[in-house]
Amino acid sequence: MPVLAGTSGWQYRHWRGVFYPPDVPQRLWLEYYAGRFATVENNGTFYRLPARETFSEWHARTPDGFVMAVKASRYLSHVRRLREPAEPVRRMLEAASGLAGTLGPVLIQLPPGLAADPALLDECLRQFPARVRVAVEPRHESWWTDGIRAVLTARGAALCWADRGGTPVTPLWRTADWGYLRFHEGGGDPWPRYATAELRAWADRVAAAWPRDATVYAYFNNDQEGAAVQDAAAFADLTRSR
Rank of each mutant, 00 (worst) to 15 (best):
78 H>I: 03
30 L>G: 06
55 F>C: 09
224 Q>A: 14
144 W>H: 01
139 R>V: 07
170 T>D: 01
144 W>N: 00
57 E>W: 12
76 L>R: 01
52 R>L: 06
158 A>T: 06
182 R>G: 01
28 L>M: 15
100 A>T: 12
227 A>Q: 03
27 R>H: 13
127 Q>I: 05
202 W>Q: 05
187 G>M: 01
126 R>A: 15
127 Q>F: 03
222 N>K: 03
203 A>W: 07
10 W>M: 07
100 A>G: 15
125 L>F: 08
120 L>G: 09
155 R>A: 14
52 R>A: 11
71 K>L: 02
78 H>L: 04
9 G>Q: 02
241 S>V: 07
202 W>R: 09
166 G>R: 04
173 W>R: 04
181 L>V: 13
237 D>P: 01
108 I>G: 01
171 P>Y: 03
38 A>G: 14
213 D>C: 01
90 R>P: 05
107 L>S: 05
219 Y>D: 00
183 F>K: 04
97 S>H: 11
174 R>Q: 12
231 D>W: 01
8 S>A: 14
161 W>N: 02
162 A>K: 05
108 I>K: 05
145 T>W: 12
108 I>T: 04
95 A>R: 04
54 T>W: 08
14 H>D: 15
174 R>F: 04
87 E>R: 14
36 R>T: 10
214 A>K: 03
11 Q>R: 13
39 T>N: 09
130 A>M: 11
138 P>V: 07
160 C>F: 12
8 S>D: 10
106 V>K: 01
117 D>C: 13
